[in-house]
Simulated scan of single mutants.
Amino acid sequence: MAGMIGSGQAFRQQGLSALNQAADMEDRRERTNQQIDQQEDAGSMQMAGMGAGLGASIGAGTAVGGPVGAALGLAGGLLADSLL
Results as ranks from 00 to 15, higher is better:
8 G>H: 03
74 L>R: 02
81 D>L: 03
28 R>G: 12
69 G>N: 02
81 D>N: 13
74 L>M: 08
3 G>V: 05
13 Q>N: 02
53 G>Y: 00
70 A>V: 04
33 N>V: 11
40 E>T: 13
18 A>Y: 13
34 Q>D: 15
14 Q>D: 07
46 Q>S: 11
82 S>Q: 15
43 G>F: 10
9 Q>W: 09
50 M>C: 06
72 L>S: 01
40 E>Y: 14
41 D>R: 10
24 D>A: 11
29 R>H: 11
84 L>I: 10
81 D>W: 11
47 M>V: 07
77 G>N: 08
40 E>G: 05
26 E>L: 13
20 N>K: 06
21 Q>A: 07
18 A>Q: 14
33 N>K: 10
83 L>C: 04
64 V>N: 01
78 L>C: 04
19 L>T: 14
67 P>K: 01
75 A>M: 08
61 G>V: 12
71 A>W: 02
17 S>Y: 09
32 T>P: 02
43 G>N: 14
37 D>H: 10
45 M>G: 04
60 A>P: 01
80 A>I: 05
43 G>P: 07
43 G>D: 14
79 L>F: 10
40 E>S: 08
2 A>R: 09
30 E>I: 12
52 A>N: 05
10 A>K: 08
48 A>T: 09
78 L>Q: 06
49 G>N: 10
9 Q>E: 10
27 D>A: 13
7 S>C: 03
11 F>W: 06
46 Q>H: 09
68 V>Q: 00
28 R>P: 12
34 Q>I: 09
67 P>T: 01
